[in-house]
C-alpha cells in the first residue's frame, strides 16, 4: 500500500512543479495547491501509519494501550490544510487583481520590475 502511495505522492510533486513552471498564472496557483496536497499526503504516509487503539490513556493507566494510532501527523496535516487554505485564498485574490490590472495571464509579460 505504501508503495502505491509513494508513487501517487511523487506524481503529485511532479505535477505541481510542472504547473509552477508553466507561463500561465492560473496554472501556477494550481501547481502551488498540488504541492501543498503532496506535502500533506507525504506527512501522512511517511510517519508509519498504524491501525490501532485510539491514543487515549485509559483511567488508572499512565500510557495508552499499544498498539495505538499516532495522532500527531493528523494534527500536523490539519494545521497545514488550514494554513494552505488561507494562503491559497490570498493567492487567488492577488492573481485575479493582477490579471485585472495587466490584462495578461502570461508570467513572461511581468517583467517591468526586473529592468
Amino acid at each position: 500500500m505504501e508503495f502505491i502511495w509513494a508513487i501517487v505522492i511523487g506524481a503529485l510533486y511532479a505535477a505541481g512543479l510542472y504547473m509552477i513552471m508553466r507561463r500561465s498564472i492560473v496554472k501556477i496557483i494550481l501547481g502551488l495547491a498540488l504541492l501543498g496536497y503532496a506535502a500533506n499526503l507525504l506527512i501522512f504516509i511517511v510517519s508509519n501509519l498504524t491501525r490501532g487503539n485510539p491514543p487515549l490513556v485509559p483511567p488508572g493507566a499512565t500510557a495508552p494501550i499499544a498498539p495505538y494510532a499516532d495522532p500527531l501527523p493528523q494534527a500536523l496535516i490539519l494545521t497545514a490544510i488550514v494554513i494552505g487554505f488561507g494562503v491559497q485564498a490570498f493567492t487567488i485574490v492577488l492573481f485575479r487583481r493582477a490579471y485585472r490590472s495587466f490584462g495578461a495571464d502570461d508570467i513572461d509579460e511581468l517583467r517591468t520590475t526586473e529592468r
Binding site: I25, L32, A39, A80, T91, L94, F95, R97, A98, L110
Partner: peptide, 21 residues
C-alpha cells in the same frame, strides 16, 4: 507591487511546501 508580489508569493510558497515536506 503586484508583479513583485506574484514572484515573491510563488517562490516563498514553494519554499514553504519544501519546508513542510
Amino acid at each position: 507591487q503586484l508583479e513583485g508580489s506574484i514572484k515573491y508569493v510563488t517562490l516563498n510558497l514553494l519554499s514553504s511546501a519544501l519546508f513542510l515536506s
